[in-house]
Design a binder for these strands. Sequence first.
DNA 1: AAGAGTTCCAACCGCGCGCCA
DNA 2: ATGGCGCGCGGTTGGAACTCT
Length: 227
Amino acid sequence: MQGEQLRKGPWLQEEDEQLIFFVTRLGERRWDSLAKVTGLRRSGKSCRLRWMNYLRPNLKHGPFSAEEERLIFQLQQQWGNKWSKIARCLPGRTDNEIKNYWRTHLKKKTQAQQEGGVQYKVDNARTDEKSSELVSQDYNYSDSYRPETYTFPLSDWELTSSPHEIWISDWIEELQTDQTETEHQHIEQDSNSSCTESSYDSYNRMRFGNNYDTWDYAVAGSLWDMN
DNA sequence: AAGAGTTCCAACCGCGCGCCA
DNA sequence: ATGGCGCGCGGTTGGAACTCT
């Protein structure tokens, strides 16, 4: 592996699958180590970005709603280009997505507003929302969107549409059920018990073959061991 | 139909911060 | 104190997709 060129550019479906497999099992941490363990010829940074911006559960990938657009507009005026901060107020949206949306859609509107006193107006052509028009200063976002009170609904996955996203969605949904069941088992059995065969395991067997667990557990056991 | 111009967004890059040995 | 590591953030870029002429 040493000296091997790192891959760049668009991610392949196989790479996504592999990354999901490892991140869901090992957690969102130590991205450099994780990148090595996955066997993907990607940097840890690249893996983290892919996960955070595209593969992570609960992400929305559809067009921004009028409500979201208003929020972005208002928070950008309030905080400036603090995209990660703004993203925390928009469940299911990433800083990258918001940043891109701002640059391509809202920046012009803001400039127009600043230059000519043109009031902010939602671009209804891009959303399915009802027409709405308001001055940003008057807008106060709902408490339900405040990061400290909002809980991310897993059903947001249902908003996705590509075949790839659909199978991830189904899988995550099954996993959620399994996790709930497993948590109950853990309460009864103590925390160091091993998981029973779940749909998640079935999934992994299907995608990575029957030997997946052997090497997976071996790797999982050593990855975070820094000694 | 096709070439030019524009828009959009996934991914990359560099920087800075916090933590730890 | 300091140097290395891991990570997150914001800015930028490349190229695919779309629109215009």
